[in-house]
Simulated assay, not measured.
Amino acid sequence: MAKFLCKCGVTLSNSEAPNDVQLHVYSDREWDEIINLNVIDPLNIPPPKHDVWHCVECGRVHVFDGDDVVRTYIVEK
């Protein structure tokens, strides 16, 4: 359970489950590797390599590697 301050000033948190902040994003290659593991039980699916959070206020998407933000994407109008 973590908190993060978006550049727009909104504090994002993944403490509630479910929530609208934390996204589960797999690359096609990651998903193919998971499928090839023959994982049948959804509870045994490994987490994605990166944590991805979406700001519900401004729409920014923040990509984390561990505790560090490695990319932030801003919505264009």
Rank of each mutant, 00 (worst) to 15 (best):
I74V: 15
D20C: 11
D41K: 03
N44P: 00
A2Y: 02
R60H: 10
V10A: 08
K77H: 08
N36Q: 12
A17G: 07
I45V: 15
P46V: 01
C6H: 04
D28P: 01
L12H: 00
S27P: 05
E16S: 14
R60M: 08
E57D: 15
K77L: 06
E30H: 07
P46N: 02
Y26F: 15
D68M: 09
C58L: 05
N38A: 12
V69E: 02
V52N: 05
V56E: 11
Y73C: 04
W31F: 15
V21Q: 00
M1S: 14
G9A: 10
E57W: 00
Y73K: 06
Y73E: 14
E57L: 09
P46C: 05
H62V: 15
E16L: 15
E76V: 11
P42I: 06
W53S: 04
C6T: 05
P47C: 09
G9K: 06
D20I: 10
G66P: 10
E16I: 12
I45N: 02
A2N: 11
L5A: 11
I35H: 08
D67Y: 05
P18K: 06
H50C: 00
C58Y: 03
P48E: 00
H50W: 01
R29V: 13
N44D: 15
D51S: 13
D68Q: 14
V25Y: 02
L37G: 10
C58V: 08
K77Q: 12
I34C: 06
C58S: 05
P42E: 00
C6S: 09
G59E: 00
G66R: 07
V21K: 00
F64I: 08
